[in-house]
């Protein structure tokens, strides 16, 4: 299919882009990597009257290591982040999650800001952000503001951002020495949207006690969600097979989906529980190996 006609702008600065968004608002869509938007436009499912191509905004491509977090410019390609030795060293869960985003060819073009702005329910990057508790900086006509992951994910498809705002930076907290992590997802084929995915970061104490657990799920609700019942069940406990199993079962409380062609609601819920268990186990094994 061919897209419907659209007006096309190529700003070269954030200011210019924001000005265009303010002018066109609801009629405009931002083109970053295009890996989600362009297929939707070619299907004519999305028919923005205006396309604002931000690929020439060079200032938005960077990865900066800070004291407690990594700042990534919105236009940084996913593949660049995935292969960054610094990210692998300081925030390995992000590198691992990125390996599950589509295929390498898609990650060559897809951007860190783009996936968050698109807001797919099964998006891995948003799920990791939610788990780590990072933040997103957006620029709008009123200036810049920071959003927590929860604010960003107020509703499906990045409802937390308004149509005249542009994501400019994402902040991922660096994992501490006493934090372990895991990321696993189940999909029909390599690179497909997750039927269920789990990101977990556990702060561990002596004797395998979990001091703090943050567990987020993707693909099982309208947005990535925190599995708070699971987290509460793990916190303060010694992690072993039975505590993990008991906690994993509570993952069903966070599931909010319908029967679909590829997976029934029941199957997805069960998958979620299995994958929460496996991801926590993976994190625990990783902790044991260190």
């Amino acid at each position: 299919m061919k897209p419907a006609p659209f007006e096309y702008f190529v700003p070269t600065s954030v200011e210019e882009a924001v000005e265009l968004l303010a002018r066109h608002g609801d009629d405009a869509k931002v083109l970053a990597g295009g890996q989600s938007l362009v297929p939707m436009m070619n299907f004519r499912l999305a028919q923005p009257a205006v396309l604002i191509d931000i690929n020439r905004i060079v200032e938005l491509g960077y990865i900066r290591e800070g004291d407690s977090s990594i700042a990534i410019g919105a236009m940084t390609r996913q593949r660049v982040v995935e292969t960054s030795p610094m990210v692998r060293d300081k925030c390995a869960i992000l590198s691992e999650a990125l390996a599950n985003v589509g295929h390498q060819a898609i990650r060559n073009r897809g951007t860190m800001g783009g996936t968050l702005a698109h807001g797919d329910p099964a998006a891995e990057v948003a799920t990791v952000l939610l788990t780590l508790g990072g933040s997103v900086t957006v620029a709008g006509p009123q200036g810049k503001r920071e959003l927590s992951p929860e604010e960003l994910l107020a509703g499906p498809y990045a409802a937390g951002i308004s149509s005249d705002e542009l994501i400019v930076e994402i902040n991922f907290p660096i994992l501490a020495a006493n934090e372990t992590h895991g990321f696993l997802e189940m999909s029909r084929r390599h690179g497909d949207f997750a039927l269920a995915g789990v990101a977990a970061v556990l702060r561990m104490g002596e004797g395998n006690i979990c001091e703090r657990a943050r567990v987020a799920l993707c693909g099982v609700a309208p947005t990535p969600v925190r599995a708070t019942e699971v987290e509460n069940q793990l916190t303060g406990k010694r992690l072993d097979a039975s505590t993990i199993q008991a906690a994993a079962e509570l993952a069903s409380r966070a599931v909010d989906c319908e029967d679909e062609y590829h997976a029934s609601r029941e199957y997805r819920t069960h998958l979620c529980q299995v994958y929460v268990r496996r991801t926590i186990q993976l994190a625990l094994e990783r902790w044991g190996n260190n």
């Binding site: 004519r44 329910p121 679909e260």
Partner: peptide, 17 residues
């Protein structure tokens, strides 16, 4: 129509929204 055959995974979310 189009939404049904391409957007299956989005329909549930969007309708609920």
């Amino acid at each position: 129509g189009l939404a049904a055959r391409i957007g299956q995974r989005m329909i549930g979310t969007i309708s609920k929204q």
